[in-house]
């Protein structure tokens, strides 16, 4: 029993050690790296990534994929910036954004499940649709100066000697909710069942189609929420915000032990994945001489590496099972 538990969590363990390793490396190399606030900054800078990566984890567990999230986040920023500038009420805008996100996700979910279209092509089209809508709103950057947004943006929640932002609190609530849903709700277990074997799930009488649609809805909601958090963070809307964020989110999930083939995944692992990416970003920032583009390249390399590790693990497991 114990050995089995261990093999199940080895990928997460590797990620955890990697994270500690990165932190230790940074602490030795750069002064000021080792501090509570620097760690909390990882959360502050990546709260939006954590939220959307949690949504992505759901999608990946069902064996699907959604590459529209970066564009949806950009669109949410853009549209809220535009509406706020036109004098809309901040609360109304926030609710509207969440509704739009859910609707967007549901739409894609219906296309994928009801018409059996491939997730990649649907979400690819979704990605361009959302980007296109950004440009329809405006091709320039729109600054957000709504007092509510600014207030949230500048808020600080003290933790020990350091602080976090309200966005981090939102992200952590999302994380906790996702953990609860995945492990203690029928919906969550159905998500795992679909990823394990969709046909079996159907034969066992589980509501496969509606669960899948709901997963894409949930992901749309997470993207929209991440969009809101990102607009608190950036206080602006721009059509080219968060280009390529889909890879970061997928990488966070995969580095955290989610299988791309579906059926296995942990939101706690996703948190570790996000923190790992944040640590890499911080290290590159501290180095100073390196271009910020290195972050993307290193994350891409890390994603490849973890996919490789997963391959090896699945092969070993398949051999043992025989």
């Amino acid at each position: 029993m114990k050995t089995n538990l261990q093999t199940k969590f080895i990928p997460i363990l590797i990620t955890f050690l990697l994270l500690i390793g990165l932190f230790a490396f940074g602490s030795f190399k750069y002064t000021g790296f080792f501090s509570l606030q620097n760690f909390l900054n990882l959360l502050i800078d990546n709260a939006f990534l954590l939220i959307t990566a949690v949504g992505m984890t759901f999608v990946l567990i069902t064996g699907g994929i959604d590459i529209s999230i970066g564009a949806v986040i950009a669109f949410v920023c853009m549209l809220s910036a535009d509406l706020l500038q036109k004098g809309w009420n901040a609360a109304v805008v926030m609710v509207l954004m969440l509704v739009i996100g859910c609707a967007f996700g549901t739409g894609m979910g219906i296309l994928i499940t009801k018409f059996k279209m491939q997730p990649f092509i649907v979400t690819l089209a979704g990605m361009f649709l959302a980007r296109g809508l950004c440009y329809v709103v405006s091709i320039d950057t729109i600054i957000i100066d709504n007092p509510v947004y600014v207030a949230i943006s500048q808020s600080r929640v003290p933790i020990g000697s350091g602080f976090i932002s309200w966005s981090v609190v939102i992200a952590l609530v999302v994380l906790a909710a996702a953990y609860y849903i995945l492990h203690f709700s029928k919906f969550g277990r159905t998500v795992y069942a679909i990823g394990g074997n969709e046909q079996s799930a159907r034969l066992m009488g589980l509501p496969v189609d509606s669960t899948k649609i709901l997963v894409y809805t949930l992901n749309g909601f997470c993207s929209a929420l991440a969009g809101l958090v990102f607009s608190f963070y950036m206080l602006s809307g721009y059509g080219l915000h968060t280009v390529g964020l889909e890879m970061d989110a997928i990488a966070a999930a995969v580095i955290g032990g989610t299988l791309l083939t579906g059926g296995v995944g942990y939101v706690i692992g996703t948190l570790l994945g996000v923190l790992t990416q944040g640590a890499i970003q911080t290290l590159i920032m501290f180095e100073g001489t390196l271009s910020s583009w290195w972050t993307k390249i290193v994350v891409a390399a890390l994603l490849c590496l973890f996919i490789l590790i997963q391959r090896v693990f699945t092969l070993v497991k398949a051999k043992k099972a025989r």
């Binding site: 159905t190 394990g196 074997n197 059926g263």
Partner: peptide, 21 residues
């Protein structure tokens, strides 16, 4: 069914009870 139509990534207990936990 002939081929076991369960989800191998879930626990034994879950495979018996999923859908009516």
């Amino acid at each position: 069914y002939q081929e076991v139509n369960l989800c191998s990534n879930l626990s034994v207990a879950e495979n018996i009870f999923i859908g009516r936990e």
